[in-house]
Design a protein around this nucleic acid. Structure first.
Lengths: 196, 196
DNA sequence: CCGTTTATTGTCACAAATGACAAAAAATAC
DNA sequence: GTATTTTTTGTCATTTGTGACAATAAACGG
């Protein structure tokens, strides 16, 4: 019988290196040389496991969207039925926990490249919408009387704070910025009950 | 005497095309071919007016930071001494007004590339901080009793909403998202008075 | 008209990225 | 040990990006 396949393991390893490079250099800056160096393999292996450049981008998009969905599902599992918005915010802003800034940076890079790719654009929009939906669910449960408009707005604002945290990461922002963005998210989450 | 110099005009024209390409393809994806095509000039002109690749990036960074500062100063001139936070939010989210989504996208692209360029990183951080400061000034004037922490947090949240609007632009988000993000910013601006 | 300065175009060489294929090495079943 | 399949490496041509220089065209003052 054949030699045991390392396809899954190697593919994951290369995809992770790809993710790192995209987060650091952007989508066009993530050359095969850099990816191979980051992954610690020879360049032809990239083609062997993930295909040509187009295939690699598609694989990365699938990976990022899947990882995003995983985060979303984990949040839903933990907070959809129980837990306060404050706990949700705590979990979202817990640094290092299960949260990977590379994911959002790669998401942004893909979004930039999606301007001429309606299908990718649609997938990214959907993944973002699903994330929003979970936040809305938690907020709506904590504030039954709040109007849907306010719930939606708060969910968008909270998500924007999270997104901005990761987007600012490359310029090494002052530590207070992180605190302030978390506080802003918390304000949005708790202010729903304060004023109708 | 010499032929009249078009340096300023041409430089501006090329820089604008550069900005467009960076917003669409990212910093590494903005090749000289694309820039020249976008600007409607031959490629060697880029070198003639802006220098080599490194010079071009520096020129773009200067341009983006200057444009950002211009927006900041305009805001300060209009709202620092008078005007409500609600009017500020209205101005910030007025589409097409004087606001150019390419600017924020290029800012992000530069930020991504600034990971190995401490000087650029510092300049970007500073431009962002100055923008924040103006928002804080307006909020503090409207809510004299609010603690500085809350003011800072609100300013960060509002800025995050603006940043996210532009960052989502490439994927052509639903119209409600824009409305919701503006509503979130408005909530942050007005919620300061509601609860101490 | 002439000279000077600038704009504009053309062209070359060099480096980097990518795509594609061939070949060697390794591991497992039989 | 042999065959088979997979991994891994090596190497080529093609394309693209960049840098640098030369040459032409144009505008203005004298």
């Amino acid at each position: 019988m054949p030699r045991p396949s390392l396809k899954d393991q190697r593919s994951g390893q290369i995809l992770d290196a790809y993710l790192t490079c995209v987060a650091r250099f952007g989508l066009e800056g993530a050359t095969q040389e850099r990816i191979a160096a980051e992954a610690g393999v020879k360049r032809p292996l990239l083609r062997h496991y993930l295909g040509n450049r187009e295939d690699m981008i598609a694989a990365l998009a699938t990976h990022v969207i899947a990882a995003f969905a995983e985060v979303t599902e984990a949040l839903e599992a933990h907070f959809a039925a129980t837990g306060t918005p404050a706990e949700l915010i705590d979990a979202l802003f817990a640094s290092g926990d299960g949260h990977d800034p590379r994911l959002m940076l790669a998401w942004q890079a893909l979004a930039t490249a999606a301007q001429n790719d309606p299908d990718l654009s649609r997938k990214l929009t959907q993944s973002y919408a699903e994330f929003l939906a979970v936040i809305e669910t938690v907020l709506a449960r904590a504030h039954p009387g709040a109007p849907p408009d306010r719930i939606r707005a708060a969910a968008h604002g909270i998500t924007a704070c999270i997104q901005t945290i990761d987007a600012l990461e490359p310029i090494a922002p002052p530590a207070t910025w992180r605190t302030d963005l978390k506080a802003a998210a918390l304000t949005l989450a708790t202010c729903l009950g304060g004023q109708t």
